[in-house]
Design a binder for these strands. Structure first.
Lengths: 344, 344
DNA sequence: CGACATCTAGTAACCGGTTACCTGGCCCGG
DNA sequence: CCGGGCCAGGTAACCGGTTACTAGATGTCG
């Protein structure tokens, strides 16, 4: 009951009456082996229900390692979809994929990267917005070098590239472009006072979206108004809180809202509803990401090719695509959360 | 540029001027070593940025294997939450966790189980409702035995147990209980004609929920009406389709709906809306699972402790809890999708 | 002062595979 | 009839660690 006696290649060799080398060769499929011998071996393999030990294999032969994706949590659709893309592409490439979660904890991230180095992962895909400070750059550069030394490739998804020399691949969404497009959508509907809800200064993803928002305003000749940019995290609760605060503390001097992402939009809509403001009749709103709640909320938003991001990350890691920074395009999904401003 | 020369324990030993055994011992931390020696070794480790090879370790020493969870997809919240629970508990137990997806394909499931056997996974956690036919039982029993032979434990989550002898652990939600409770909730609000939307005869999870629905009706002395049980898959699209069909092909001879899960409810609500039926004013509806869309829809539903399921599965696999079948309790979450029937 | 216990560190076998190299049998041509 | 080539399969080194066993140095006690 205690230690299980596993079936080894030697057991198979013994039963088939051949050497371990022959068993290994039959299983590998390369190397010529007599049909009779092959049959004996296959018989023994089946009889004993032999399964080769992946660790022993990885140790002796140079075989492809696993592909790992590291995210904050898999319970957030944004990450889940990307992970799904990674999973699929990795499977297609014949790789095992590991999905690791950090819970947003830098310490855990570090120990996971360490763990993946020990596993001799072929690629480590890091996903998610971050504060790009000096400490971060240092940490990533360290990861990049140590992973490279171990023969692993580092892929940054939706994160800014490192300075030159950092051996990391980069792929992300065109956040500025999408934000520009969806803001223009509001502008072309006549909106001029647009509240940006959920900016996070210093966070790469958020910064790009705000940049797109501002450039779209500029394109329409609308002066940017700092009081229309409200900070907040990318969560439903934060969206609800920020909206509630804004509604109760200041004038409703805007006709539309651009939420940092769909979760923020969902929270904001609840807050609006509680104040008796209906979407889109009393207030227009758009989101970003095109994740589940947006369908049920009828939310106009920016669709991101999440799974494509995951797939691309894997392909890049395996050297299928180029190694330059890649940006994936986005497109608006029009639903029913925006009304044109009626000219008075 | 081609093959990376990895740093091995021998390199460290050489640099520190000691034997590999000493390095191994210093790193393991057991075994007495002079402070001076330890320092020399640690220095060399840092200088060379040495990372032990997990495969070599797994091969020689008896170390814990990874914990794997196998689901259809990680893009469905139900699975994502459970996976999250597994991840957390596995990390807490010092285990690496693998999240694998099958896309609902039996063939892929088989090859994944095979892969996990090769990896010498410590536990394999299979999640999700299935059709319990003879073929399924045979397949699971096979998995169970072959995994057991490899020293791995098999945990079935939300799936029915195998016949006696199958070395599999079982943990699931109290689906019948939750369904009974939420149906009673509707009954106590005066509803008597309750449409069950999304039954899937043969599927374990669905069957339990239908059973709870029926027993609650019986408890209130309401005769079950087969025409009120509509089949359909557990997805938004299926819910929408089934609801649309029902509304256009038959009379609206019900005042409330019990959707097989929240996604089905979301689809049904959209269909109702398109027919001009408002929730809850014109129609009451409840869901099951308590996953994201239900918050935004204001849907009364049954909360499942998803992450707790994941955590329990891991604990059971590691022998922390008992080995008997475990059932996790559920509770109703009342939101705003049910109105009492006004007595006329 | 010698016998023996204690402590530290080295030697080498082993984990379970892969594969470079070698061997023995057979067929062929000269 | 013999030497070379080919083919199938065996032998053993190796991948990178762990650890049982052993050896040498030191300390202790009678």
């Amino acid at each position: 009951m205690s230690t299980v006696k596993r079936v080894t290649i030697r057991d198979v060799a013994g039963r088939a009456g051949v050497s371990v080398a022959t068993v290994s060769r039959v299983l590998a499929g390369d190397y010529p082996v007599l049909a009779a011998t092959r049959n004996k071996v296959m018989r023994a393999v089946r009889d004993l229900d032999y399964v080769p030990n992946a660790h022993a294999r990885a140790l002796s032969a140079d075989r492809p390692g696993a592909i790992a994706i590291v995210v904050n949590t898999v319970a957030v659709p944004y990450y889940a979809y990307i992970a799904q893309g990674v999973e699929e592409q990795a499977a297609r490439e014949g790789r095992l994929s590991l999905i690791c979660t950090t819970g947003g904890d830098t310490g855990r991230e570090l120990s996971i990267v360490q763990l993946l180095r020990e596993q001799r992962a072929e690629a480590v895909i890091l996903v998610g917005s971050v504060v790009v400070d000096e400490e971060y750059r240092k940490r990533m550069t360290e990861y990049a070098h140590s992973l490279a030394a171990a023969g692993s490739r580092l892929v940054l998804c939706g994160r800014p590239p490192l300075e030159e020399g950092g051996p990391a691949l980069v792929v992300g969404f065109d956040n500025a472009g999408g934000a520009h497009a969806v803001t223009s959508h509001l502008l072309s509907a006549g909106h001029r006072r647009i509240l940006y809800l959920g900016s996070r200064p210093g966070h790469s993803t958020s910064d790009s979206r705000v940049a797109g928002y501002r450039s779209a305003l500029a394109g329409y000749g609308v002066a940017a108004d700092p009081t229309l940019e409200v900070e907040g995290e990318f969560s439903r609760a934060a969206g609800y809180a920020a909206m509630t605060t804004r509604l109760s503390s200041g004038p409703v001097d805007f006709t539309a809202i651009f939420a940092g992402n769909d979760l923020v939009a969902a929270g904001a809509i609840q807050a609006l509803r509680e104040r008796g403001l209906r979407v889109p009749d009393d207030m227009s709103i758009v989101g970003y990401d095109d994740v589940p709640p947006s369908v049920d909320l009828g939310l106009t938003t920016v669709h991101l090719p999440h799974d494509e991001l995951g797939r691309t990350a894997v392909r890049m890691a395996l050297g299928r695509d180029g190694s330059g920074p890649t940006v994936l395009g986005t497109h608006i999904v029009v639903r029913d959360s925006v009304r044109p401003i009626t000219v008075r």
